[in-house]
Amino acid sequence: MKTCLVVDDSRVIRKVSRRILEDLGFEVAEASDGVEAMAWCSAVTPDLILLDWEMPTMDGLTFLRRLRAEPAGDQPKVVFCTVVNEIERIREALDAGADEYIMKPFDGSIVAGKLDYLGLIA
């Protein structure tokens, strides 16, 4: 079973994301910020990370840059899932190593389409 780490400071977004991802066949773990996510990723490398941008303690972009600098940090697919929608910021995220970008609000079909595009679901 593929694994996904949902990183978002909103408990509601984590819950909605978990439901969508479990319906798509993922085993899901959660983190509320980048620091928690880094600790999780140092123990287990997930197949996918669904990542918010704006979080306390460590934001999503900082987390992504640190993750990609780690020895196995290039392995997980990272999909930003955020309200940040300026084209310059999207380009910044993709340049930092994000594989895809989803705008909030989102639904199951949007997530499924992105994950299908990334080759993570059949």
Rank of each mutant, 00 (worst) to 15 (best):
L64T: 11
M58I: 10
V79Q: 04
M103F: 00
A112R: 13
P76W: 09
L61G: 14
A93I: 00
R19A: 09
D99W: 04
C41F: 05
V28K: 10
M38Q: 12
V44H: 09
V83T: 07
Y117W: 14
A96R: 01
V84H: 09
L67D: 07
E54P: 03
A37V: 08
A31I: 12
D95A: 04
N85S: 14
R66E: 15
D116T: 06
I87V: 13
V16W: 04
G119S: 11
K77R: 15
A69V: 01
D47Y: 09
I20H: 11
D99G: 08
M103Q: 00
W40T: 04
V6P: 13
G25C: 10
D74I: 03
T57Y: 13
L21S: 10
D59T: 09
G25D: 10
L48T: 06
P56W: 05
F106R: 02
L115H: 00
C41M: 10
A96T: 00
K77W: 09
N85M: 01
R68Y: 04
P105Y: 04
G119K: 05
G119N: 08
K2Y: 05
A122D: 12
G34P: 10
G73H: 05
A72D: 11
D107K: 02
K77S: 14
D47F: 08
M55V: 13
D116E: 08
E30P: 13
E100P: 01
A112D: 06
P105R: 04
A122L: 08
F80A: 00
T82M: 05
A39Y: 11
D52C: 11
V83G: 06
R19P: 00
E30S: 12
E86A: 02
G60N: 13
P105V: 05
A72K: 10
D33N: 15
E100V: 01
L115Q: 02
D59I: 07
F63P: 07
D59V: 05
G108R: 06
R68A: 06
R68K: 07
A122G: 13
A69Y: 01
K104I: 00
A69G: 08
D23C: 12
L120P: 13
D116L: 07
L94F: 04
S17Y: 02
D23W: 08
I49G: 02
A43T: 10
V12T: 15
R68S: 05
Y117S: 13
K114S: 02
V84C: 06
V7K: 06
W53V: 08
R89K: 14
R19E: 10
G108L: 01
I102D: 01
A37T: 12
Y117P: 02
Y117H: 15
M1D: 13
L21R: 12
G97C: 06
M1L: 12
